[in-house]
Design a protein around this nucleic acid. Sequence first.
DNA 1: TCAAAAGTGTTCTTGATACACCCATGC
DNA 2: GCATGGGTGTATCAAGAACACTTTTGA
Lengths: 233, 233
Amino acid sequence: MSYTYPQPRPAVAVDCVIFGYDHRQHMPELQILCIQRSIEPFRGQWALPGGFLRLHETLDQAAARELHEETGLESVYIEQLYTFSALDRDPRERVISVAYFALVNLERYTLHAGTDAAQAAWFSVAKLPALAFDHKMIVKVALERLRGKIRYQPIGFELLPDEFTLSELQTLYETILERSFDKRNFRKKIHDYGLLIETGGMRRGKPHRAARLYRFDTKRYKALEKRGFMFEL
Amino acid sequence: MSYTYPQPRPAVAVDCVIFGYDHRQHMPELQILCIQRSIEPFRGQWALPGGFLRLHETLDQAAARELHEETGLESVYIEQLYTFSALDRDPRERVISVAYFALVNLERYTLHAGTDAAQAAWFSVAKLPALAFDHKMIVKVALERLRGKIRYQPIGFELLPDEFTLSELQTLYETILERSFDKRNFRKKIHDYGLLIETGGMRRGKPHRAARLYRFDTKRYKALEKRGFMFEL
DNA sequence: TCAAAAGTGTTCTTGATACACCCATGC
DNA sequence: GCATGGGTGTATCAAGAACACTTTTGA
């Protein structure tokens, strides 16, 4: 059998579930960036940022490009999630979509008006609007992945500033996992892993005791990881 | 902005990492099905079974179809792994590949001569030949996924016959995870989960005491799973 | 001085690990 | 009768869970 050029091809798109989190809020919520579509199909509806793969770029590059184009963000945590391929997921024609999820610390980022006439907005995951295509399902899979992964990989730090307090870290976990942790047990566990470095700084300005600031010790984590160490919260 | 038909498109392929396991072997090994390519590129080299996505099928269907065409197997465990998109992964042209992994119990399956003039053969994961394209990397990712997943999801049973002994189950875990378990602790843990049903049958025919046969209790597992239960080995 | 979150240890319970001997079978 | 794996329980250790009060800060 000779090489048969595969004639009819699906279009290949990349869609990004961009999770945002703001530790400064009193009751922080996990948020997702949506854009309001300015073109058909689903014109006027909210959807995940995304676009078509170009031939000169990898999927990772396409996802990073889309994220940059639609939000201005660069060098944030992003990873491939899953590839969706239902036959009718796009009414125009056959499109498969490689979904990514990204984690954004909202302190460093304030939303600029959407780039190409599209409105962008953050929605709490609890109050997402109706989404175009199969994006509701993509969000569902992304949430499951995030919740599963955050418990045994230190990706949660991507949602916080470089320096953070232990309470901020605990609230982050509680928000994402939708459960509460005992303060003393949480702190003991975190400290016992030895993965946080006290910076010496303090978080002040609130009408209560100031809190110590910490940084995540990436180098130490990577070293331990190579020796088969497993972090688990 | 109007709908811009995305002109240059990559071809979309599906590749399958088919894991095989035979509990009847004395020292079982995890194996992978490879096919010897009869066409260019990489003619004569070993590769993972795969082919191009057709427009009328989903990726899951394409993976199942490829698996069926190249092995005759149907209704085995199969799940999407990752989508690979390096620019030069196929020398012909731009091809992205959605990789799947499947689990096959080799007792129920003996390899027929390859379908379309291609030779198919099982290789121990420890002694894989050189593989075409980026298939070596795909296998690496599949192995990591299998090893990670088998510890907290009962997919290992897919590699055993419906009825199996506790020693067979233990050997399966030891083989895949490349570590040993204490026999008494292993059995206690398995029993405590209450997910095995004693069938009453015995595995005989070996020059030592006969062993009790068990079935995995899928219904009970699914019920527990919905209530947030987590199995972990 | 008050409200609000920061910070800190001990006890108890549970699950993980380590470990050795008798039993049944086929040859 | 012997070699081979099947089958069983207990004691120890480590990690997880439960739990309450004092300290510091800004308003």
